[in-house]
Every structure is written in structure tokens, then in C-alpha cells.
Design a protein around this nucleic acid. Structure first.
Lengths: 183, 183, 183, 183
DNA sequence: GATGAATGAGGATTCATTCAT
DNA sequence: AATGAATGAATCCTCATTCAT
């Protein structure tokens, strides 16, 4: 019985997270918690029961996203062609960004202070692995460091999203960055 | 008398703009209009008389900034060493960004929608000139286009600011971008 | 089985009362029912099953306290020195008050309206007995009535608690009241 | 013109204070600020413009009351019969209390923390004067101190109000306290 | 009977904007 | 034109109470 209830709660938690991701992606982190609740189909109190603070909700979203990205990076590192894996991941992330307003804002720390140290480090490690392998394959210069990759990843993701780059501009811009990694 | 008053009004307009730039730079675009008024030494009503909407005020600031940047770009294009002018300008803008919260937010469209088409085009033209000259000097690959430069400029400015890059990371990251422009 | 359950229920009821007394004593009547539940080690629903309303819970606590006070008064009336018993009881109650936030608030009706007619009458009877014996011993003027004693008891208890009297002020103040009873 | 406006503002400020006094007197300090605004006939924002915090509003009320009491005490000290002035003032305050819920709560510090050190000291000084004169006139024992008078004043005021004493009980109770002062 | 998740009204506070002076 | 007081919608958050499990 308790298990049942917890299942309900978990379902709600996930609905809230999904709703929040959508709402914040559309309207930015300034969107109201009430709108998240409405989109999730729950009462406002339920949102605050699961995430005692709006900030907690934002933090949960970002942590989730970062974790997902790290997993994707790991998958690419294991399976794919080392020469292309890093660039493929980079491209993928930037494309994704175009669909998520919050991510960029929050990765950036835009006004909201969300502490995501842990998940961010994990992502950097995964990216580091991709980088090392690309370097071993000779696809990236040896003196490029993980924090530089992360920095350009964040920069292009934000810009792609917020600046409303079209796919063509996005590709051309990434090409330049990738050329910078190579030469 | 009317002329007198208009002079007053113009002075007020400028004080408000200056105050707004300062306040929004420090506190971000979420800072209150009242704080701008206080810093400008005028009453809140005066701010709204000059800028009927907070958004108008934000727009005016960004337009001003973009215009200033365009002028700087032009100055460099006329005077400086074509091989270095583009990179110097690029570096300068990114460094500046670290001191201005609003700029990045607004260039990005963070929450607020400010229409700055004209001044942005003007800046792009100036940057285009810098680019052309750098290409003629052989410092940048020929197929790099102005909108790509603008895109990376915006991206690194935002990221440098919001991500809190330290000067070292900033330099290393720009080096990669510049390498991408070259080869 | 039903009997078993009722034993559980009774135990829960008492744990809740104890927890409520502690919580409300510390945080005042504004403390949340949830905190009471937590301290009692039961779920919030259980609290509301036993006391359908927060007010009911508060009422139960006050009734319990009044009953306890009446018992103490009775004990003093039977055993102690009639000359001192009333003053000892009075002093004791006021001292106690300093440790109980709710009591004063509730005796006072602070925001919450709790009906405690019966237990209050019983306390007044006990106090009446103490008074009568003190009068017979010549320690208190004959025209002092029980409701006056009760009134001053409530007054000094509340004030001692809420006003944060230090022990010295408390003693000096009580001395004046006792002098009023005597002469 | 500015003066006009300020007149409006002052009028509003006073309406708000009056409304607040009434509302908090009826419903206790837990009454909502919105109700105060409604009773004052202003929008909620106006209340917060004048008193940035609910607490500030409560503080203002209490300070005002204490000041008023101090003035009354001073007036009695100057004009009246020293033998009766202190008791008259004491009686008056307790009678007044019956009409004011907040006062008692706040003097007591009931939940809300309002800092009224200054006005309270001033009142104590005024009461001290009344006391000294009563002592010089031989109406009060010499070893009674001002803080004891204040303590009993607060105690009886609260109790009279919150306990709902009827006039008869009030008078009889005060007689006991006064007897304590004398003997 | 117990559990604890969900509800949703209520409350304090902020702030862009309007408007009387 | 400037002033700054007033407005009131919007927002975050709390908590008594209900109800499905």
C-alpha cells in the first residue's frame, strides 16, 4: 500500500519535472511555479512538496540534464569512432540546446543560483574521455584541455539557443570551433 | 523656456540611461526600475516618461552598447594592424562582457525581448570590415563569414560573463576560436 | 484485535498530546501540526484522526494542563501549611508559565478560541480551597475572592512568560501581589 | 504641490494606522495585511509602501500607543492629586486594554518581534514620575520600583483584555494590586 | 486505524505602470 | 515636465485539512 502510494508520488514527481522542463524551456527560468503545476496537472502545493523551493526544482532539472548528457558522452566514448565522437557529441549538445531555454540560462547561472557542482564534474569527466580519445586518434591538438571544451560547449549552446541560430549558421559556426580544436 | 526644459529633459534622459546601464550591469535585467530611478536621481515617473516601458529602457541600453562597439570596431579597422585588429576587437568585447551582466542577457534575449535589429546590423557591418581586412592580410581563412564571427562573439561573451570564466580560461578558449578562424 | 488496535490508538493519542505540548511550548500556537506529527513519530493523518481540528488539539492540551494544575492545588491544600500553600501554588504556576508558551497564549485566547470551561472551573475550585484555608489561617484578607485570585494568576503568568521577566522581577512583582492579598 | 501630495500620503498613512489598530484589535496580530488595506480603503501596495513589512506596521501601532500612554501619564503627573494619579492612570490603562487586542499581544511579544525599546522606556519614565509622587504623598510604599509597576500594568492589561474580565472583576482585582502597592 | 500525498485557499511581499498634483 | 504616491496583478511559499491506498 505504501509502495502504491509512493508509485503515485514518483509519477507525480516525474510529471512535475517534465512539465517544469517544458515550461522553463519555453518561458525561461522566470516562468511561474504555478504554470509548472498546471502543466503537470497537479496543485501548486504538490510541486512545493516535491521541491520545497523553486530553486530546488530548477536545480533538479539541470542536474537531470547534465546527467543525461554525461551518459550520452559515455556511450559515444565506448562505441563510436574516436575521430568523430567528440565532434558528434558537441554537435548534438548544441542542437539540443536549441530546444531548451533553461539549460543555457542555468548552466550560465543567469540570476538563479543553482548548485550543480557534482553533475557538472561528472559531465566534464565524460567529455574529458571523449577528448583524450580524439587526441589519441590525432583528431584534436594535444594541448586542448577539457575545461576549454566545456567552455566552448557552454558558449555555443547558449548562443545557439538564445541567439536563435538557424541550422546552417550553427553548422558553420561549429565548423570553425572544430577547426580550432584540430589545428 | 521650452528649450530650457528640453535641455533638462535630455540631461535626464542621459542620466537615466547611465544609471540603468550601471544598475542592470550589476544586478541583471531583473533589477527594479525604481533602483534605476534612484541611481539616476530622478523620480520613478520620470523614467517612465522617457521610456514608457522597462523594455524600452533595456532596448535603449543595448542599442547604445552595440553602437559603441561598432564605433570601436570602426576605429580599429581604420587605424590598426589588419592582421591583429579582428582578434583584438574580439578579445576586447569578451573582456568587457565580464563586467556587464545585462549585455549578455539581452544579446541573448534572456526573458526580455528587445528588438535591436538596426544597431546589430551596423555592428555586423563593422565586424565585417574587420574580417575582410583580416582575410586580405591572410590572417583569417577566406570562407569565414561575418555572421559566424558574430555568432562566436556573442557565444563567448555570454559564456565568459555568465559562466564566470577566469582570465586564463578565457584566453585559452579564445586561442582555440582564433585558431579556428585561421585554419 | 480491536482491543489491540485501541491500545495502539490510545498510545498514539498520548504521544501526540505530549509532542504537541512540547512543540507548542517551544514555538507557540502558531507551530504547524506537521511538526507535532513529526515529533510524535506519527503521520499527519493520525493527528487529525485523533483531533479533527488543530483547535481541538490545542484545547486538549490546555484542558490537560488545567487539570494537572488543579491536582497540584489539591495536593497542596491537603498536605501543606495553609499559610503558605496558596502563595506557594501561585508562585509555582507563574514559574511554570515561563517554560510554556502555549499556556499563556491559550489561557489568553490568543488568536485561537479554545473552550475550556469545565477544567477551568475545576481549577478555580481547587484554588478556592487554597484560598479559604489561607484566609482561615489569617494569611489572606477575608474579602478576597477566588475569581480575583484566578485573574491575578492568569495575569502574572502571561506577563511573566510573554514579557520575559527575569526571576528577580518576577519575585518582586509577586511580593506586591501577595501583599495585596494580605492587607 | 509636493506639499499637497505629502498631505495625501500622510492622510493615507494615518488611515492605515487607524485601520490596522482596529483590525489587529479585533482579530489579533495574525489578521491579514489585506484586511487592513481594505478597512483603510487603500490598495495592498499602499500599505506596504508606508510600512515595508507587516512587522513595521505592528511596531508603528505599538509605538504610537506607548507614546500616547506616556503623554497621559505626564498629564496626570502635572495636574492631578499625587495620591490618586498613579492609581487613576493604572486603572485607565487597564480599561483601555479591554478595547485593544494587539497591544497586549505586542507588549507581550506574542510571536511577533517588535522592537519598541525607546517608547517603552519613555513610558516607564513617565510611570516612574507618577510613582515617585505617589510615594512622596505616602500613597505607595517606598520600596516599590517602576519596573514592578510596569510589570503589573502589563500583566493586568493583558489579562483584562484577553481574559475578558468584566468591569466588576477588573475593579476588584485592581484593588488588590493597589493594596499591594500601599502596604 | 495509519499513512503520507494532494489539495488549494491564504498570506506576505514585489514591482511595472498609472495618475493626481 | 517632474514628482512620487497609489494601484493591483503576480509570485513564492505555508499549512490546515482531505482522501486514496
Amino acid at each position: 500500500m505504501t509502495a502504491q502510494l509512493r508509485a503515485d508520488a514518483r509519477r507525480n514527481r516525474e510529471r512535475i519535472l517534465a512539465a517544469a522542463e517544458a515550461v522553463f524551456a519555453e518561458r525561461g527560468a522566470a516562468a511561474s511555479t504555478e504554470e509548472v503545476a498546471a502543466r503537470a496537472g497537479v496543485a501548486i502545493g504538490t510541486v512545493f512538496r516535491h521541491f520545497p523551493t523553486k530553486n530546488d526544482l530548477l536545480g533538479a532539472i539541470v542536474k537531470g540534464l547534465l546527467a543525461r548528457l554525461a551518459e550520452e558522452a559515455d556511450a559515444l566514448a565506448e562505441g563510436g569512432d574516436p575521430e568523430k565522437a567528440l565532434f558528434a557529441f558537441f554537435t548534438h549538445v548544441v542542437e539540443e540546446a536549441a530546444a531548451r531555454k533553461t539549460v543555457a540560462e542555468l548552466l550560465a547561472g543567469g540570476g538563479v543560483d543553482v548548485r550543480v557542482g557534482k553533475p557538472l564534474e561528472r559531465l566534464q569527466e565524460s567529455v574529458g574521455t571523449l577528448l583524450r580519445r580524439a587526441q589519441q586518434a590525432g583528431a584534436v591538438r594535444d594541448d586542448v584541455r577539457p575545461d576549454e571544451v566545456m567552455a566552448l560547449l557552454a558558449a555555443t549552446s547558449q548562443a545557439a539557443l538564445l541567439g536563435g541560430w538557424d541550422p546552417d549558421l550553427r553548422n558553420r559556426t561549429l565548423k570553425i570551433v572544430f577547426a580550432g580544436f584540430r589545428a
